[in-house]
Write a protein that binds this DNA or RNA. Sequence first.
DNA 1: TTGAAAGCGCTAACAG
DNA 2: CTGTTAGCGCTTTCAA
Lengths: 334, 334
Amino acid sequence: MPRVGIREVAVRAGVSVGTVSHFLNHPDRVSAEKAERISAAIEQLGYVRNNAGRQLRLGHSTTIAYIAPDVSNPFFGTVAEGAEERAAEAGLSVFLANSRGEREREDSYLALFQEHGVRGLLVASALPIEDRLESIRRRGTPSVLVGRKASVQRQPSISIDDVLGGELATQHLINIGRGRIAFVGGPISVQQVADRLQGAGQAVRRSGSATLEVIDVETRLISTGHEVGAMIAARPPAARPDAVFTANDLIAIGLAQTLISSGIAVPDEIAIVGYDNIEYAANAVVPLTSVRPPHEDFGRAAIDLLLDVIDSDGDPKEAHRIFAPELVIRGSSR
Amino acid sequence: MPRVGIREVAVRAGVSVGTVSHFLNHPDRVSAEKAERISAAIEQLGYVRNNAGRQLRLGHSTTIAYIAPDVSNPFFGTVAEGAEERAAEAGLSVFLANSRGEREREDSYLALFQEHGVRGLLVASALPIEDRLESIRRRGTPSVLVGRKASVQRQPSISIDDVLGGELATQHLINIGRGRIAFVGGPISVQQVADRLQGAGQAVRRSGSATLEVIDVETRLISTGHEVGAMIAARPPAARPDAVFTANDLIAIGLAQTLISSGIAVPDEIAIVGYDNIEYAANAVVPLTSVRPPHEDFGRAAIDLLLDVIDSDGDPKEAHRIFAPELVIRGSSR
DNA sequence: TTGAAAGCGCTAACAG
DNA sequence: CTGTTAGCGCTTTCAA
């Protein structure tokens, strides 16, 4: 089956290829009669515009790529939706790619999208990737780092103020009268975890009287919460914290489950605050108080920033956009 | 900044563009000395191959697209990973796109990928999309429907035997001695729900003595489970089912939470079996027995089938691949 | 092993 | 409003 091109359409409609192209790109400049004929020819022939030819001629694509480490993380999905919405308004499409947090896959997608000549990149990555993006930017493809503040001034980024988040959570626990607070999270080498802990520390210090115990963990899963819960339940009651702030909601959910089934009342004996405000948080056994990052705004903001970077030729007005999280108070802390 | 092309590389390396292209595509046909010079020139100039030119000349791309309704559904992620893995082995890349289950977005991505000349499409959709894919196939882009069996013989698809899944779940409940079984799910217009119910019906009928109550619901969320749980708890104990099979794990989790907090013992008074085996199932208050579809195999199988379709020019040996689910037994039913 | 050159499909500038 | 045409960057004959 010979692929049908603009030429066949032109012949069929009895016009020139230029007119067909005009019809496709500037419909207003074509007479109604010919437009009709062209439209019919396209229909009959099943013509599909060839993007390669178009892009080659135009010199640029109309696509943006979003590379993320974990597609099945709801955070990713929410951000992607906001990005697609805003991109569509600007006449751009978004392609998604899944790096699984592996350096090798990140690199190969980065190279792939560069070769495809995408207009820009949205990149979420826990790994230090600033150097790589810098070299890609020098070759003409701009990018926005999504999810953490770039360590380099020149690299635009969209992030959340995790220090503030940690502070909000911990201050709330202090406000409801708790004084022996535990932070569960780790590894500290993860920037987000370190920031949340730092915020917690600030709130505790400011209170003057509260204390902060750090329970360092390797993972941040529901099962991690189970383990920590068992550990706390095994202590004599007086040695237990009266409030726990966890680095994410999964830990908090596991923790609450184990505490309750060990006969420890939540929030009466131990109040709990999580982080991320995932969907499960509201539906857990005890509805979970959680720090909510405004993910819906992320995607849109990322595209806005990227467009600004493109328009300003790499020198946007505000290279780093930092969002403030807010606290959603539920049953686990009141 | 003038984009650097193969021509600049050729000049810098003191060779012809043909030789550079050879170096890129058939490195073995280039002398070591020139290869060295070309490689250095590419490095110095920061040359990035332009896919548009390449694809235009080649006449086809080296990319596959996967369009799914919900990126943040773990099912999607798992399938995508398998697909990417298998595609990579075949020298292909996978682009993801997010239709949100909206017909309009589906169509626009379908058109976009067609214009991009992808080698093939993986499409997951709850909507009837067979006609659309048929017309796209006629225009030269093959596809595999992922997640449900195509209603048309000619449309290749990868799916799960949900009737068998429903049967496994219900037979298990009968095997552990339950006889008043309830199915919670809906709307029945969703094929997967209807199939699971049908399987349940088969198991019940075969038992001769068990009964099946159908509790029809509009949504399939944790909160749906909460509502159904409250409804069951409000009944006099004798009127309650002694086992519940739910259309998915979310309903089951919500149901279990509400039953337990209403003082009804799970599984002693009411056993529960869910469907999908989501990560949360194993970590719920009561670990949940669930039907596990082999999603890991899905992605690979979808690509295999797609490659077969491409190679066989639209006439694969086996157009519909149907996977058998298995039952994972946990605390909620023993 | 290397170089020269044609041409993939399309858009836009230009001429009419 | 419409037609003609150059050329985007690349790969691959074909000839040397």
